[in-house]
Design a protein around this nucleic acid. Structure first.
Lengths: 221, 221
DNA sequence: GCGGTTCGATACGGCACTGTATCCGATGCA
DNA sequence: TGCATCGGATACAGTGCCGTATCGAACCGC
């Protein structure tokens, strides 16, 4: 069902309606987003100048203004991309666990699923920072808050579903309602991870807290 | 035992050694700190210009540079002052509860003590923001991280002591070690509070989560 | 009251960044 | 291959903020 007129039988192209992003354009956007992630994490969203992001991406500001209206738009595009990645990661982690493994170590299984919403360990610190930056922006700007809420809700619902299914598969369930359970797990995980990062990364506080919560929270169905 | 030479019998004043902050200077500093709290919360530490802080305080930059070397020093002075206030508040909240009240509603009592580390409700949002800003700065700067860790550890230890005593007073205890218990409570409280603020303040998610944690965490001694 | 000192105001030079307008090489299409 | 469009580079004017140097008024002790 080609709703897009560009895919129709006529050769006429409606350029003014849909600009049809070229591959080249797509690549520069990606490079700008990658650079923005690094620079935002290193300097902070507010302190990061558009100039610095462009330089990190190997462009000048001309490229930037050709692709984004301002820094905020770039940031929102970045969070959207990251959320898509997170959801895919979660999906993969949740479906990739077989019941035998889960039964063997339920704490580790839950920890693994919760941790899956984080990107590769190398970027752990950067991602923690970006998450905080996003929250801060949301606390100051109602429009950003709405976007944040949407993405956050989506993630927590997926997580609640995944974990509920995971537990049900081996005859267990949350002692509280799944929504609360996920909030507690994520709260424990995030504060634990931040504690670990701030302490220099010695002991893995996040895992310890997650396991404590699982012990308290998971009960026979 | 007057170790300070200025308090000795001689009238000679050692100005070069200890500048002996005048009342006037003290007032200026306080006004700058108050203004900084507002402006930091509103714009963010990085985006807040020294100029804006001075204007909010009713000074020019001359006053600022006469009192602080740079914005970071001002910020650290601010966090120190706030931590002192928090500790005092906690002390007050913990000692002000009689066993009867605690026994009547243990969940509310714990919530109350945990919440005491927050300033007056009017500044709730501002303080949440400032706490996040502090964390963010700490994640980027090892020196700030050390300071943050010190203040945070102090607060958590006090909280652990207070709550352990509170529970012991009515024959209860944490099901896990107090340190973990406090981490879980604070994690739940903070994430709940942020959720509430971001959702526009409808339901009090922080209280709900705290109560869930108390139910799971508190057990007969 | 008077001198010295303190402390905040004022004035200055300089810099980094922003957003726009314009240019020109790369790209895709017949 | 030639041409039209696209996309990034370059140039420019404007702005806000920084840190310092200097000034002058309020605030002490005597």
């Amino acid at each position: 069902m080609p709703a897009d007129p560009r895919t129709g039988s006529t050769t006429r192209v409606e350029r003014t309606v849909v600009p049809a992003i070229s591959p080249r354009r797509e690549r520069t956007r990606e490079r700008l987003l990658d650079a923005a992630f690094d620079v935002f994490a290193r300097l902070g969203v507010q302190a990061a100048s558009i100039e610095a992001i462009c330089e990190a991406a190997g462009f000048t500001r001309g490229a930037f203004y050709s692709n984004f209206a301002n820094k905020e738009e770039l940031f929102l595009a970045l969070t959207e991309r990251e959320t898509r990645v997170q959801l895919a990661r979660l999906e993969e982690a949740a479906t990739g666990l077989d019941p035998a493994t889960v039964r063997a170590d339920i704490r580790e299984a839950v920890r693994c699923v919760v941790a899956s919403v984080m990107p590769d360990p190398a970027a752990k610190q950067s991602w923690s920072i970006m998450a905080l930056e996003f929250e801060l922006l949301a606390l100051r700007d109602a429009q950003v808050a709405a976007r944040y809420a949407t993405q956050d809700r989506r993630l927590r619902e997926e997580l609640a579903d995944s974990l509920t299914r995971l537990l049900a598969g081996i005859g267990l369930r949350f002692a509280v309602d799944p929504h609360t359970g996920v909030d507690l797990l994520l709260g424990a995980f995030e504060s634990g991870q931040r504690a670990t990062l701030l302490a220099g990364g010695g002991e893995d506080r996040a895992s310890a807290l997650i396991e404590a919560v699982v012990d308290l929270l998971v009960t026979p169905a």
